[in-house]
Simulated assay, not measured.
Amino acid sequence: MLSQEKIARINELSKKAKEGTLTEREAKERSALRKEYLESFRKSMRTTIENVKVVDEEGNDVTPAKVKALQEKRKLN
C-alpha cells in the first residue's frame, strides 16, 4: 500500500486543485501519485480476490472457476 506521506500529499494537492491554486508541476505530481495509488490498490484487491473462497448457505464451494484457476496457478509457482 502507499505510504501515509504520499496519501497526505495527494490530499493536499487535491485541496489545492479545488482552490484553483494548483501549478502545472503540482498537477503532474498529483497525476503520478494517483496512478501509483491506483496500481497499489488494484494489486491489493487482486491479491484479496485470488485468496477468496466462496461458500453458499449449504457449505458448497461455489468459487468462480476463473478464481480457482488463478489459485491453482499460484500453488504451482
Rank of each mutant, 00 (worst) to 15 (best):
M1L: 09
M1Y: 04
M1Q: 06
M1I: 06
L2N: 01
L2K: 02
L2W: 01
L2E: 02
L2Q: 03
Q4H: 03
E5H: 05
K6T: 02
K6H: 03
I7V: 07
A8K: 04
A8Y: 01
R9I: 01
I10H: 00
I10V: 06
I10F: 01
N11R: 06
E12F: 03
E12C: 01
L13M: 01
L13W: 01
S14Y: 00
S14V: 05
S14T: 05
S14K: 06
S14E: 12
K15V: 00
A17E: 02
K18N: 01
K18Q: 05
K18Y: 00
E19A: 08
T21Y: 00
T21W: 00
T21A: 02
T21H: 00
T21V: 10
L22D: 01
L22S: 00
T23Q: 02
T23S: 10
E24Y: 03
R25K: 05
R25F: 00
E26S: 02
E26C: 00
A27W: 02
A27Q: 04
K28A: 08
E29Y: 04
E29S: 03
E29F: 02
S31Q: 08
S31N: 06
S31T: 05
S31G: 02
S31K: 05
A32W: 06
L33V: 05
L33P: 02
R34T: 04
R34C: 04
K35N: 09
E36G: 04
E36K: 10
Y37H: 11
Y37P: 02
Y37A: 08
L38F: 09
L38C: 04
L38G: 02
S40M: 07
F41D: 07
F41S: 11
R42Q: 14
R42W: 13
R42A: 11
S44C: 08
S44T: 15
M45K: 15
M45G: 06
M45H: 13
M45N: 11
R46C: 09
T47V: 12
T48E: 13
T48W: 09
I49D: 04
I49E: 10
I49V: 15
E50I: 05
V52F: 15
V52S: 12
V52K: 14
K53T: 15
V55N: 07
V55R: 06
V55P: 05
D56V: 10
E57K: 14
E57Q: 14
E57F: 12
E57H: 13
E57P: 05
E58W: 12
G59R: 11
N60C: 07
N60F: 12
N60D: 13
N60T: 12
D61F: 10
D61W: 08
D61R: 08
V62I: 15
P64R: 09
A65G: 09
K66C: 10
K66H: 13
K66T: 14
K66G: 10
K68C: 11
K68Q: 15
K68S: 11
A69G: 06
A69K: 13
A69H: 07
A69M: 10
L70D: 07
E72N: 13
E72A: 14
E72D: 13
E72K: 14
K73E: 13
R74N: 08
K75Q: 12
K75R: 12
K75V: 10
L76S: 14
N77I: 12
